[in-house]
Structures are given as structure tokens and as C-alpha cells.
């Protein structure tokens, strides 16, 4: 029965030092909505919690020249209250806001959702579609990676010992662009995604698609970018033929499992359905922007 220690460093450097020294039994603690559940269920028994919420930069949303920076400890509720961010990336914010209840929203963070490395994490397909990247601090300094490189398998990230996420970067959205996230759950709230789809669309002046990114969650070991979707959408308008091809591409990209939340057959079919529905929403948003 190892004792648990709690530290609340105020600088990134101090946090890195603590995490590096803490080894495998150290955990980054921000919102705690996954971590404390795992501890409650005795799935993990860490010996050190490094609370990063006292590090100023993890608590801020800042709009910079080419991107918006979301601190790793910014909560879902805070994201939803940031009108500028909501206007820029409504799909990403909606995805984060789907995580858990209002109570969970007051604590849960977008970075935590990413680092939990669940294939069903709601914010991740939305971030992949948005082309987001992750700022990582570690013993060797800081670096950035695309969001899709964070999770390597269910529950496992590419973070090295002593590394942690300090912020998420969302690129400034071009004009004539929009994004959306939809998920399927059996209830209306409080469920884990059975299928999640994030879409980001940029339109040409003539109303055809200039660029598109579509990402699927909960249908493979990690959330994935559906590369074929871009080829189907770019240069085209959204008609039935395109939507049919898009649905097929999304379903084809699935390699899901049967589990307590859904079947292979169901997930594969519904991925196609939601891909079309989410694309329509993103498209409408792009037309308005």
C-alpha cells in the first residue's frame, strides 16, 4: 500500500521535474474526471499526482497570430463560455461539451480527454478534423505534435516519461469554413460515444469544397483521419452521390469491436450515417461564414 503524494507546481519546469522523478506511478492531474474514476475503481494506484492547474498558462485561452491556444487545464465549461472560440470552432467546442454532465464540464479538460487516450473520446475526432496540434513539455524541452499522434492504442499515449501536455493549438479558421461533431449514444446524455464523427470543411467561392477533414472516433483503436473523405468532397458540392460515397468511405474506414456499447455491424453502418449528417452541418456553417 504505497502512499499517494499530491503536488501542485506553479511552473511547467517544476511539473516536468516532478513527473520525471515520479516515474511510471506519477500522473498528471487536471480535471480528474477520468483519473479519479480510475483510482476509485482501483484500475490504477498512482503514487504521485501532479496538479497542473496552478501553472498559469494551463488555465488560459489565448488568441495568437495563427492559432488559438487552449491551456491544458481549461475546462469544458470555460471553453463553452468563450464566445470567440465558439464562433471559430463550434464543432470542437460542441464535442468537448458532450463529455459528461454539467458537473463534469466544470472539471473536464480537452487535454485530459486527449491524454486519456480512449478511442471514444469525443473531442479528439473534432480536433483531428480541425487540424489541431498538441504542445508538450518534457525533460528535453517543448515540442508540438498533431493531435492524431497522441493516442497510440486504447489508454496509451505517445508521451515519454516526464512529458505532459501544456496546451492545445487550434489553427485560425479560414473564412468560408465550418466544423461539426456528432456522436451516437443510446441515451441523450451521459454516455460514451458508440461512434463519433468530426468534420471540418472549407468552401471555394463557387460553393464547391476546397478542403475537408473527416475523423472518426470509437470505430478503431484510436481516433483516425479518414483520408478518402477529402478526395470525395474536394471540388464537389454536397449532393446525394457525394454523400453516398462519403458514407461508404466512412464505413470502410471502420475497424471496430463488439463490446458493451455497440456491435461491429452497428458501428460500421452508423459511422457512415453520422459522417453525412456531420458533413451537412459543417457545410452549412461554412456557407454562413
Amino acid at each position: 500500500m504505497a502512499d499517494l503524494k499530491y503536488e501542485s507546481p506553479t511552473t511547467t519546469e517544476a511539473a516536468v521535474a516532478l513527473l520525471a522523478a515520479g516515474g511510471e506511478m506519477a500522473r498528471v492531474f487536471a480535471g480528474g474526471t477520468d483519473l479519479l474514476v480510475q483510482m476509485h475503481e482501483e484500475m490504477i494506484e498512482p503514487t504521485l499526482l501532479v496538479d497542473i492547474k496552478s501553472i498559469k498558462e494551463t488555465r488560459e485561452i489565448t488568441f495568437e497570430a495563427d492559432y488559438v491556444r487552449i491551456g491544458a487545464a481549461v475546462t469544458g465549461a470555460e471553453l463553452g463560455e468563450n464566445d470567440k472560440l465558439v464562433a471559430m470552432w463550434p464543432g470542437v467546442v460542441e464535442a468537448v461539451e458532450l463529455i459528461g454532465s454539467y458537473q463534469v464540464q466544470g472539471r473536464a479538460t480537452i487535454a485530459g480527454n486527449l491524454c486519456n487516450a480512449s478511442p471514444a473520446a469525443d473531442s479528439v475526432p473534432a480536433m483531428i478534423a480541425a487540424g489541431a496540434s498538441v504542445c508538450i513539455a518534457g525533460p528535453t524541452g517543448t515540442h508540438e505534435i498533431p493531435v492524431e499522434q497522441m493516442a497510440v492504442s486504447p489508454g496509451k499515449t505517445s508521451l515519454a516519461q516526464g512529458e505532459f501536455v501544456t496546451s492545445i493549438l487550434l489553427p485560425n479558421r479560414p473564412s468560408n469554413a465550418g466544423d461539426a461533431y456528432l456522436r451516437f449514444i443510446p441515451r441523450t446524455e451521459m454516455d460514451i460515444a458508440v461512434v463519433g464523427v468530426g468534420v471540418s470543411i472549407e468552401l471555394n467561392a463557387d460553393g464547391t469544397c476546397a478542403s475537408a477533414r473527416l475523423s472518426l472516433g470509437a470505430v478503431s483503436a484510436t481516433a483516425q483521419l479518414v483520408k478518402a473523405a477529402s478526395g470525395i468532397l474536394v471540388g464537389n458540392k454536397l449532393d446525394d452521390t457525394v454523400l453516398e460515397a462519403l458514407a461508404s468511405a466512412a464505413s470502410d474506414a471502420c475497424s471496430p469491436i463488439d463490446d458493451k456499447r455497440g456491435t461491429i455491424e452497428f458501428r460500421t453502418k452508423v459511422a457512415g450515417v453520422l459522417a453525412c449528417r456531420a458533413t451537412k452541418i459543417a457545410w452549412q456553417r461554412a456557407e454562413k461564414n
Partner: peptide
């Protein structure tokens, strides 16, 4: 209660 899905108010 996450995966034993009893109705919530919005259901």
C-alpha cells in the same frame, strides 16, 4: 451507471 443505462431526465 455509465454503461448500465438508466433513463436520464433528457431521455
Amino acid at each position: 451507471f455509465l454503461d448500465y443505462r438508466m433513463p436520464v431526465a433528457s431521455d
